[in-house]
Structures are given as C-alpha cells and as structure tokens.
Write a protein that binds this DNA or RNA. Sequence first.
RNA 1: GCGUUCGUGGCUCAGCUGGAUAGAGCGGCGGACUUCGAAUCCGUAGGUCGCAGGUUCGAAUCCUGCCGGACGCACCA
Length: 590
Amino acid sequence: MLQQMKEYWKETISAQILEIARESGIDEALVKDVGELVVQTPPKPELGDLAFPLFPYAKLLRSAPAKIVQLVCDRLITKVGIDKDRILPAGPYLNVKIDVASLAIDLDKEIQDKKDRYGHTTLLKGKKMMVEFSCPNTNKPLHLGHLRNDAIGMSISRLLEANGAEVQKVNLINNRGVHICKSMLAYQKFGNGETPETHNIKGDHLVGKYYVRFATWEKEEKEASEQAQAMLKKWEDGDKDVLSLWSLMNKWTLDGVNETYQKTGISFDEYYYESDTYKLGRDIVHKGLEKGVFYKEPDGSVWIDLEPINLDKKVVLRKDGTSLYLTQDIGTAIQRHEKWPFDSLIFVVASEQSYHFKVLFYVLEQLGYSWAKNLFHLAYGMVNLPDGKMKSREGTVVDADDLIDSLTQLAKGEIISKSREGMVGDIDEVSSDIALGALNYYLLQTTATKDMIFNPDESISFSGNTGPYLQYMGARISSMLKKWEEMKNNFNDISFDASLLTLQDERELIKSIASFDTLVSLAAKEYNPSIITSYLYEISRLFSRYYHDHQILKAQTPELIKARVTLVKMLLQVLKNAYYVVGIPFLESM
RNA sequence: GCGUUCGUGGCUCAGCUGGAUAGAGCGGCGGACUUCGAAUCCGUAGGUCGCAGGUUCGAAUCCUGCCGGACGCACCA
C-alpha cells in the first residue's frame, strides 16, 4: 500500500521537474534521458519518509541540486497546493513526509478485510508454477542440507502462492542406483532380520545405518562395490528377491522421511520416483537425433554439442543405449509438463548442479519446447560447519531428526526454566513449534543462493536475531490483546483516530506494515525468502522498542488506547502472514 | 587450465536494480524488571566493505585485472 503513495509523490515531483525544464526551453526528451526519478528512504526518520535525490538533474538544468530542490519545493507548495509541512528539503534531497494517518486508516480497513490474505498480490495471477524440492535418496535419513532445501522450497512455494500463482510442489525420490544397492547389500549381509519394529528405530535411520555399514565393509572386502554393481544389474533385470528387499527398504526410508516432513511442516502435491522415470527420455533423444539436435558417435553413443552456450559436449545416451541422469531429467520435465502444463518450473537444487541444469534447459530449448525458457534453477548454497564441510565418512553430517529433537528439548527446557509450563498449553507442541521457528528462521535468513555456515551453538540460541524472538513478539501481542478483549466494551463508542499515532515509532510501524505487499512480491520475483525474514526482524525490533517505551493498554487517553490497540492488531496480522511464508509457527503463548 | 560463485567489525549475516555518517545478532564492557510477557530493552567499544585500477557529481554496490575460498567441468546421480 505504501507503493501507491510513493508513486503519487514520484509523479507529482517528476511533473514539476518536467515543467521547469520546459520553461527553461529544454527538450523534454532530454529530461526523460536522465531516467526515472529515484525514490529512497532517508537514513533517519526525522528527515522524512521518502527521499528524492535530485543530483541527476543538475547537469541538465545547469543548476546546483540544492537549488533545484528549492525550486521544486516552491512549486509544489504554490502550484500543486501541497502543505508546506509535508516538504522537507535537505540539500540535494527533496524529502517528503507522507500522510501516515490516512495510510493507517486505509490499512486498517484493508487488513480487516483481507486478514490472512493481507499482503497478497496479483503479480503471478493465473500462472501455474511447479516447484521441485527436497528430492531425498532412499539410502539414508535427511540431513541439514535437506532441511535448507526444504525450507527454501516450502517458502518459495508459499511466496508464489501469495502472489496469486497456482503452485504444485513436487518431490522426486531417488530410489534407484548403486548407492541404494549398497545399503541393501549390507543389510543382506549384516541385517539379521532387523526391522524398524524389532529394534524400535526409525526406518530411514535403520537403512542409513547399513549404508554406513557398507562403507566400513568396503574397506575389508575389495569386491564389495562390484557386488553392489551386480545387485543393481539384478534389480534392473527384475530379480524378484532383490526387488522385494528393495521395496521393503524403500518403504522404511520413505516412512521415516515422511515423518520428518510432517515434523517440519513440509508437504508435497505430487511425488515422482526415479524408479519410474529413469528410462524416460530415450524416445525423446531418438526423435531429437532425427531432428539433428543430437549426433551419434561411431560407438553408438549420442551427444549434444554445447558450443553455442560456451560449454563442451555432453553425452545424452550411453553407447549401450541406456539413459543417463540428464536423459532422465529431460524425460521427467516433459512428462511433468504433459501432466500439469506449468508456465514455469523452479528446481530447488544445490548450486553444485548448476552445470547440469544449464545443459538440461538448453537441450529442452533445442528440442523446441517453448516452456523451456521458463525453467529456473534455484541454486542454493551449501551448508557448512564452522570447521568445514559436512562429511559422512567423518561422521560430521548433522542429522535432521537429531537436530530437531535437540532444538525441541532446548525449547522445552527454556519454558520450564521460566516456569511457564502452566501457561503454554501443550508443552510438547509448543516446544516443537519453537524449535521449528528457530530452525526455519536460521536457515532462511541467509540469502538462499549463498553458502552458509551452520553454527550449532548459534542455531540453538533463542535470543537475539532468532525465530523465537519473532515468535515472542507475536505471543506478547496476543497476550495483550487477550487483556484488551476484557476491557474493550468500555471503548465501543470510540472510533479509531489514526491522527493520534504521532510517535516516530508509530509512524515507522505503520509504514512498515504498509510495505509488506511490496516485499512479498519482491521476494517472489527474486526467489528470496530472506527478504521476508529481514522484514520480520526489522518490524519486530521496531515493535519491541515501541512496546518497551510506550504503554498501549494504559495509554493516557481512551482514544489513544484505541488507536494503539488498532495499530497493534494490524501488526499481529502482518506478523502472522509473514511467519507463514517463512515457516515460523505462530504461538499465542510460549 | 576453463567456467560459475563468494570475499563487509573477533564470529555469523544484512545492505549490492549506484546516492546523505556502512546496519544487525552473537561475543566484550556497562545499564534497565513493585508497571501491558526481561525469550525483552538501552548504552558503549569494534569496520582502509579482499587488493589495485576504471566509469560517475557520487561506488560496499557497476566494469577490468589480481589475490584468496567454495563449487563444477563423468557413457555417477
């Protein structure tokens, strides 16, 4: 909503500059060459709400920027009839004080009307957007890297939806290949019939245990990896025993993984399985060969020349005619588009695969699929530990379930140490919501495309710039509004007078609430949830200070109480909507 | 070697579609709970924005080169 006000001022000021130029006999085209007027926020609130730097016009108008500012200010007052209190010239900057009271009144109406949908836009209305994320292997449980992937995928999906898109979340399960056979083989050798039930162990962890077991066995037994290869061959030939072991262990893993998804609030609209898709793409390649997109080497392998995109060449079909990772992905993309004709597809996959996706998109484009230009690889960065990479063979991989459990325990301890068990309702539920808030906020606050360092000590901290800090603001407001419910009957005949909200913090809060929609669309455009996490932190910090310095339910006059409560109600709705988009559970009490 | 990408206080990160003294959190030091929830707030110390050039009225932000790190460059997925 703030955007409209910005536009208004921008146009009004631009018009005056244009007229000044015209009066001095300067060609309008030259004014346009300078570019659009820039709107900024002054570094300090006392300087106004909006800032328009007028440096760029100095050369054109042959005058010092500050003089131009004066000139424009005079005209705004005399010709446009703008109240002179709204205009604050500051050297080369023309600053403006917007009408925050009327903004607050509009906001209040809008928020009451839209509620959970406040901040939503129509930017992507009518678009069908598919988001692929998570994509676990079925040979081990989820780890920290998946958690980042999941958090990003989930948040992006919600952001796209908030901007009006129809979203389908898809997961591709990597349930096939030598790595899967490795855990199967180890289980066959050392499993002794252990099941998740007999040993009371989560299925994915059980399978993961045998994957690790294979690695140690491989050191003693030279033929281990050959045996795994042989098993894969059997699997592909449809060997009954291998297949039944495979489906049993797959189920164990998937049950476990799904349990983790449930705990972390992750869900999908559609699951794809590599075992169903790995042969896909071959026919397409054959057709592409006829069309001349690909070429065949004497040994029978099929290639594509990537010279046009400054890369080498790449195999798309083995000499024995079987599919590769790339072939398969060509097939799945096409299959997906047939099943659900998306306008765009976003792959949330680690940045190590940038090359793969560059090639994939190019191939699809060459094959003539018009939608290929709307494929996007959201290449998120690695999660490292303070002393380096996570390495499975060094046992430094942070397990997803372990991490969540320990965060939950810590949250619970915190509740108990504050003697709040009695007030929070279901303590286990609240603890895990706090853990989730901490985790998702931690994972999303770093720009998705950058590598990040996961510091266990910091991630478990609940104070400072953390998820629980944000949740705490929601809880305090909720608690305050409960008290308000008890007293509000005394305020029935008082209406919301926004002009009473004159404190700097109040102005800032109103502007911040009003800018939410702009950030929701920006975050979606840039596929960047951290825009929302930063926003949440900033607005929470603002409120926290405000709340500390000023009384709300005990403000000086009933009118002021009403006005402040109205403001706080708006804030709570915005917080809730923003929490949702970044996967932070809202808590009435914590 | 080639390609992609990152380099901001002790640590972890914002800011990067150029603009007014570079922002936070953690950690350090010092304050604030008989008052709407102290998982909070306030103050303070701490930065040649990797280095060197360039473009510009103006560069952490754009361009070039260099240095350093990460990732990729399989008939693995």
